[in-house]
Amino acid sequence: MKVSVLGAAGYTGGELLRLVHTHPELDLVQAVSRRYAGRPVAEVHPNLHHLGLTFQPPQELSPVDTAFLALPSGASAEVEAGVGEVAGTIVDLSPDFRAGASSASGETYRTGLPELYGDDLPGAARISVPGCMATAAVLALAPLRRAGLVAGDAVVDARTGSSGSGAEPGPASHHAERGQAFRVYRPTGHRHETEIAAHTGVRARMTVTAVPAVRGVQVICHVTPPEPVTRRDVLRVLQHAYRDRPFVRVVARSRGVHRLPDPQFLSGTNFTDVGCAVDEDGRRIVVVAALDNLVKGAAGGGVQSLNVARGLPEQTGLEFPGLHPA
């Protein structure tokens, strides 16, 4: 399948170039960037020097089977109709078409989260991948909701690395401000609350903190069950929910240094690790989920969804296991 990546100069765009290049069934035709058109891809993504690619301008799009849109909020909606004229399938990584929103062209986007919507994706021509923190929280909460273990709202404490702010620098991403900071930048009202509720039926009270890391998302979800439960009860629910899902691993060790999910071991991978703890009285469940915001939370989630949509094995091109130490 021939593929173009629009917004290829961004961090998510770079991950898409990396994943598409190594994917055995995808052929990378174009890396598209308005700002860097005509310049080498390696100038922006030095890890991709060996590809020998040059950024192409958006007005010179080639016909392809699939176009990935790794564009800022609002930009995908502006170009979607034109891209649809040269691409049979569009996989969007922006917020523009999430939660079942229709485009101006009347196309309905299916949700690119195979763990919940795998049955809806085969044959899909328009796919929208949820946000990175929303993906982590949804994968943490959805099994508990289905099992009847959530009474009332969930408190979602999310932490995110600096790459989640994108490649364009700003005052808050300046190293002198960000380097050692644990900055609570969205104590209430984050837009992912709406996404989480749409996909789980749970109202999320979300707080987001910027932490001194480049990659990674970790969410800690606090849930009150309708009646006391044990940790074993919750583990059974998570293990049953994800027993056939190749990219969700249940991690809840009773010994060792790293007992619950930590995003540092997920850099470059398409895994989400999910684990849990329960208060001694069984009246509070704590579910922890971690992922790489640029891969499972964006580019990898898009490739995984395309694999399902086109009938390929879900893991195709996404089998990198991560590193330790990281």
Rank of each mutant, 00 (worst) to 15 (best):
Q180I: 01
A197D: 11
R191W: 15
M206P: 03
V208G: 01
P169D: 11
T188S: 10
R205F: 00
R186E: 14
T160N: 04
R178H: 14
G170S: 15
A172E: 12
P187Q: 03
P169C: 12
R186N: 11
I196S: 01
A167I: 14
V202F: 03
Q180F: 08
S163C: 14
G164D: 08
P169F: 11
S162T: 13
R159M: 06
E168H: 14
H199E: 05
S162H: 05
A176H: 04
G170K: 04
E195M: 02
T207M: 02
D157A: 04
A158S: 09
R203C: 05
T200I: 08
I196P: 01
M206K: 06
A197I: 04
S162A: 13
G152W: 06
S163L: 15
V184H: 08
S165E: 11
P171A: 13
E195V: 09
A172N: 10
T209I: 12
G201H: 11
H199Q: 07
F182V: 00
F182P: 00
A167F: 14
G179W: 06
D153P: 04
V184P: 01
R159T: 11
R205Y: 00
G152I: 09
H174K: 12
F182A: 03
A210L: 08
V202T: 02
A158C: 07
E193L: 10
Q180V: 04
V202Q: 05
H192I: 10
P187C: 03
A154L: 03
H190K: 05
D157P: 00
R191K: 12
Y185P: 08
G161D: 04
G189P: 04
P187G: 02
T209D: 07
A204F: 06
R205E: 10
D153N: 08
F182Y: 09
E195S: 12
D157T: 03
E177C: 07
P212S: 02
M206H: 08
M206T: 14
R183P: 02
Y185C: 05
R186H: 09
H199S: 02
A167C: 09
V211G: 02
A172H: 14
G164R: 03
R205D: 10
S162I: 15
T200H: 06
T188Q: 13
F182N: 05
S163K: 15
A151T: 13
Q180G: 00
E193K: 07
R191D: 09
P171M: 10
E177W: 07
V202I: 06
G164C: 14
